[in-house]
Amino acid sequence: MSDIVMSAVDVNVRFGGLRALADLDLEIRSGEVLGIVGPNGAGKSTLFNVLAGAIRPTSGRVLLQGRDITSSRADQRARMGISRTFQTVRPFLDETLVRNVAVAALAVGDGRAHAMDVAVDLLEQVGLADKAAARASELGHGERKRLELARALAVRPRVLMLDEVMAGLNPSEVREIVELIRSLCAASGSELVLIEHLLSAVRSLADRVVVLDAGRVLADGTPDDVFGDPKVIEAYLGTKYATS
């Protein structure tokens, strides 16, 4: 359990005067589902962007299995198996669902025919097989989130980072996607990192939870330990949770 797959070492990100991440250290361990929570502006999405290569940290390093990948681009990291979804989902609207997913499979696979097969398979897994030939623009919000999940899986991730995949979904959709993520975790064996505002979902999915606050790690431990920590309750959850 303690094999470190990916890590951020002493990472700082500054946007002008704002310190989005401050001396942050994070380890993603083999076989775990890691939940990352924190209030708005805590630096969760910034952390994802640093790990995925969408932004270069002001200082610090990102390692994948001990190898320094700080200077590699987002597309290179995707091909290394660091895959992410976006908080605001922006699928390729003019394209069919299968092409949305297949273009990612093509980046790591051999040939278009194979990429198409992979895409159809993944769409089946996320429950969109019957709409494979529809255009992404025809999808509702919840379906777009599932399409995003299929796209992120298509690069054969070693580390899969899901940024608020449950935001904006209704309760039944949340239940569905929690089930889906559970089964994907079991089946794929890739490490899963979740950013989620929905604490019930994090509680039921994560093996370990990291709480961010103002760009720093406030707490790190099992869900029960973390959510029982008075520091966390005060900074993030509010007094309401302290009694419940």
Partner: peptide, 20 residues
């Protein structure tokens, strides 16, 4: 295929492994 993805959304294309 890659161009179509880039046209759709550049960050998503890059996250899909497309060398923009």
């Amino acid at each position: 295929w890659r161009l179509s993805a880039i046209r759709g959304d550049e960050p998503t294309a890059a996250a899909s492994g497309v060398d923009v």
